[in-house]
């Protein structure tokens, strides 16, 4: 099966909601899948990447707009 890319909309949501949603969503994905989390709360820029890296996943962040980001997580295990 091809790796899929899944979008998770967390716009307008404050911490720790984006992190909790990200954790839940990631458990439903397979290794190799990519989760793209949309956020506009800067604190989620800290705790989502920190958590995901601690879990061993690959993380990259794109600034989509001023104050709006996509956290790209590649599930590696």
């Amino acid at each position: 099966m091809m790796a899929q890319e899944v979008l998770l909309d967390c716009l307008g949501e404050a911490c720790p909601v984006p992190l909790v949603k990200t954790e839940k969503k990631l458990t439903t994905l397979a290794v190799g899948d990519i989760l793209v989390v949309q956020i506009d709360h800067s604190c989620a820029m800290k705790n989502i990447p920190e958590w995901a890296r601690k879990e061993g996943h690959n993380v990259e962040i794109e600034e989509v707009d001023d104050g709006e980001w996509e956290v790209i997580i590649e599930k590696v295990k």
Binding site: A14, C15, P16, L19, C43, K46, N47, E50, W51, K54
Partner: peptide, 17 residues
Amino acid sequence: YLYDKGISFCATCDAAA
């Protein structure tokens, strides 16, 4: 317990929770 399970390093991030 790091980050999401109770140990935090950022009050600004997790105070409201």
